[in-house]
Write a protein that binds this DNA or RNA. Sequence first.
DNA 1: TCTTTAAAATACCGATCGGTATCCAAAGTT
DNA 2: AACTTTGGATACCGATCGGTATTTTAAAGA
Lengths: 214, 214
Amino acid sequence: MARLTREESRARTRERLLASAARAFARAGYGGASVDEIAEEAGFSKGAFYSNFPSKEAIFLALLEQKKLGEIAAIRALLAEPDTDTLMQGLRAWFNASHGDPTLSLLAAEIELQARRSESLAVGYRALQGRLSGELVGFITAVFARLGLRPPAPVSDIAATFIAISNGAAMASDAGANPSGRLMLLFLDMVLKASRPIADLGPTVWPLTPAGGR
Amino acid sequence: MARLTREESRARTRERLLASAARAFARAGYGGASVDEIAEEAGFSKGAFYSNFPSKEAIFLALLEQKKLGEIAAIRALLAEPDTDTLMQGLRAWFNASHGDPTLSLLAAEIELQARRSESLAVGYRALQGRLSGELVGFITAVFARLGLRPPAPVSDIAATFIAISNGAAMASDAGANPSGRLMLLFLDMVLKASRPIADLGPTVWPLTPAGGR
DNA sequence: TCTTTAAAATACCGATCGGTATCCAAAGTT
DNA sequence: AACTTTGGATACCGATCGGTATTTTAAAGA
């Protein structure tokens, strides 16, 4: 094992704390996971924790950012795919992978829920979630255009539903049955099945009056 | 104000504690809401709390039961409706109403999440959720039959998706935009749009291999 | 090699938690 | 009216929480 510089060592500690926090929050919830527990599971003391993060909320927010930015990157990578068939296949693969680690989806649910409770968390959350939603809307719009299909509902609603299923199935899944990925795949299929070709020039009829906001 | 018997007084205290707990858990989460806080907001002391519930977990479980049994009753009431149009209208009305009180949906999400953390909670949860899921599957099957439509996917998956959207949208909703009821309405519409009449005798093609377990 | 500096460990703080023991006042009983 | 029962209030417990102050240790700079 090579000797590490101070910078490297610090970065490694930070990352281990983040990974440990993700596990702890998923397991016990934000309130249930203690700073002591997070630090110890990472192999450090509480002193190390507070040397790297100013507060418990801060590490939670850092986790939130890590996750949301990762999702945005994944969407962009998919969209950059020139071949549409490969893109759809990649999308399905992503859905399937998203339930592989229940820790991750459980953490996602915990983050969403907690962001509604603390105003300081909510501020950071809204900024990131807004970016992710926008990215997702752009993605879905592009996919429909590529497939030559007309969305069967406002794209923002479709995007919101994907997000809802992702979060909702993560917590409701009975120990692996009906993982979120499966349900998202099913919804994707249903959306496509409910779509008509763009060439079909019938009137565009939304199932509901379009949403007020966004 | 009439003098209350001991029984009446006790029942009233219990109900007030339950209502207060629902608000507190929705607001602060299971871990974040304290027994003191619950009791005080109901206008009682901690002693009153422990006189009516053996533990914090117990009141949470009682809340869970109250909610699930209420949903089962609502489903049965809808299914008893002889006129199918009225039934569908009632279903839509129910979806719309379910987002009226964010406290309720937030509590639902908290319950789902917490039931996965404590084994003792999970036991009670699984029993109730199993009953609700079964009821929902029966309901959806009956509705499709009444409408003369063939479900576009396994009914158990459709049921799971409704539950997921309900829970997921509750926590993701940005202060009221895209309430869960709206998204459930949209999914309902999409499911119907993706269905074919029973008379159509084409092959039944599920979008996915049917789920292994329930 | 000696000094400086900062990452991480240890020790500690007041506050608050879920839960228990005890007490009191009002309802039920005779 | 006297006595019993019990729902709810008060007081208290050890444990644990998030956070801070201080000390140790090892890398960086001379």
